[in-house]
Nucleic acid binder design. Structure first.
Length: 436
RNA sequence: UCCUCAGUAGCUCAAUGGCAGAGCAUCCGGCUGUUAACCGGAGGGUUGUAGGUUCGAGUCCUACCUGAGGAGCCA
């Protein structure tokens, strides 16, 4: 019999249908059984009464175990006590495979155990909600760029040399030479932007940093737009419209999932452009005031990069993402364009998400002068020969250009209101975790 | 790399230096509207590893292992 998905159940009320899925949980009351069935599209409670089914079917419903694969025939109808909720009157149940004792019980579990069983944990309601939001965010990301004249130009995962120092890169054997897993598609984006004008790349990114916090993965997904002839202000406007689009799409299409996650939706409803802009100089003042008030332990001095507690403090002053721009050039990457009015500052921007979710976007205007880049490469002790192709971009029609990168997992964690990014990707890769 | 915390049944946890326990899961029995269902019964242990203190260590001490949170670094 043709399979009906639980998400489509309301179109089949009163009809006999077949659901192919798994037993999520089971309760019984003597000769009346309640079987929660999931099929990937949703979960529905099946009701089976001994007097209404064959002995074989009743026996099957009694012995079926949690997460056994099952094919069920029955008729959906409204829940007697809950309007808008559907139930299935079970007429027949066939066990495809009787599951062994399932390790994830309906009681609570610790993180370590659940991470070890990640391949099974993905079957839970909560993980479904998170990964559906992730899916929606990714769709919104693609739609935003695709509908705004950007060309998807993906960049390589294997790269020949370190761009920002080898310590943060995973080294792999590449036949007879060494290669590194990409930590950013940006340098390649600059080449494709010079070819196509407006481009983006979207793929996995690898960082070998020994970071062990709720915001870090060693493998994560990053989307990076790059726009030829764009200035810092253009890219800040792009970033706020981009985030605004993502948030409104999630609110529009994934409200049910946010409710499963008990997300405070009112906080997300405030996220609409324009976002506050805060120059680094003013951020320093804000942090120093925060220290005077006793909200921050140490006094922040001009010249340093913002630490996590600093970012959290700044973002707590706003109910929207805040765009901190024009950091000291010394704490930023070699390819940043200096501010012509203040050459000690870089034309860069970090977008800090609200509620302490930290930096979700980093970007800025790229240096367009060949001489400047050559000097910077020397100052940073980087191998010039590795950048010959990159320097070509400054020899052949160099233009001002800018872009940014957004970490998908941090965005998912923020919109879902999660404690940790590890639940935002199906199989997280972290320091000390490579399995499953 | 550094700081803090934790490790006891398959899972989540309890046990003043003095008989190693409960709930869930599993198995057996009961229950016709359950919702992490409930009620009764049963089985289930090298207390992370190695050493030490003590009449006696899950508990105190030392080292190590594993994990979690944070710092630095970052998206």
């Amino acid at each position: 019999m043709k399979q009906t998905y639980i998400s489509e159940i309301s179109k089949h009320l009163g009809q006999e249908i077949t659901i192919k899925g798994w037993l999520y949980n089971k309760r019984s009351s003597g000769k009346l059984g309640f079987l929660e069935i999931r099929d990937g599209s949703g979960i529905i409670q099946g009701v089976v009464s001994k007097k209404d089914v064959s002995d074989e079917t009743w026996e099957s419903t009694e012995k079926v175990t949690q997460e056994s694969s099952v094919i069920i025939t029955g008729a959906p109808r409204e829940h007697p006590k809950k309007p808008g909720v559907y139930e299935l009157d079970i007429k027949d149940l066939r066990i495809v495979q009787l599951a062994h004792e399932y390790p994830i019980t309906p009681k609570e579990h610790g993180v370590e155990f659940l991470m070890d069983k990640r391949h099974l944990w993905l079957r839970s309601r909560r993980q479904h909600a998170i990964l559906r939001v992730r899916h929606e965010i990714i769709r919104a990301v693609r739609d935003f760029f695709d509908n705004n004249g950007f060309i998807l130009c993906d960049t390589p995962v294997f790269t020949p040399a370190a761009c920002e120092g080898t310590t943060t890169l995973f080294e792999v054997g590449y036949f007879d030479e060494k290669a590194y897993l990409t930590q950013s598609g940006q340098l390649y984006n600059e080449a494709t932007a010079a070819a196509f004008g407006k481009v983006y790349c979207f793929g996995p990114t690898f960082r070998a940093e020994k970071s062990k916090t709720r915001r870090h993965l060693t493998e994560f997904w990053m989307v990076e737009p790059e726009v030829a002839y764009a200035k810092l202000d253009d890219v800040m406007e792009l970033a706020e419209n981009f985030i605004g689009h993502i948030v409104s799409r999630v609110l529009e299409s994934r409200r049910e999932e946010l409710n499963v996650l008990e997300r405070d939706i009112s906080k997300l409803e405030k996220i609409a452009p324009p976002f506050p802009r805060l120059q680094y100089d003013d951020a320093v003042k804000m942090l120093q005031e925060g220290h005077t008030k006793g909200a921050l332990e140490s006094r922040f001095e001009w010249g340093g990069d913002l630490g996590s507690p600093d970012e959290t403090y700044i973002s707590s002053q706003y109910d929207k993402p805040v765009m901190v721009h024009r950091y000291p050039a010394a704490v930023k990457a070699f390819y940043m364009e200096p501010d012509p009015e203040r050459p000690d500052l870089a034309l860069c921007v970090d977008v800090l998400a609200p509620e302490g979710y930290g930096e979700i976007i980093g970007g800025g205007e790229r240096a367009s002068s060949l001489e400047l880049l050559l000097n910077r490469i020397q100052e940073h002790g980087l191998p010039e020969e590795a950048f010959d192709w990159y320097l070509d971009l400054r020899k052949y029609g160099s233009v001002p250009h800018a872009g940014f990168g957004m970490g998908i997992e941090r965005c998912v964690a923020w919109l879902c209101g999660l404690e940790h990014v590890r639940e935002t990707i199906p199989f997280p890769r972290m320091l000390y975790r490579l399995k499953p």
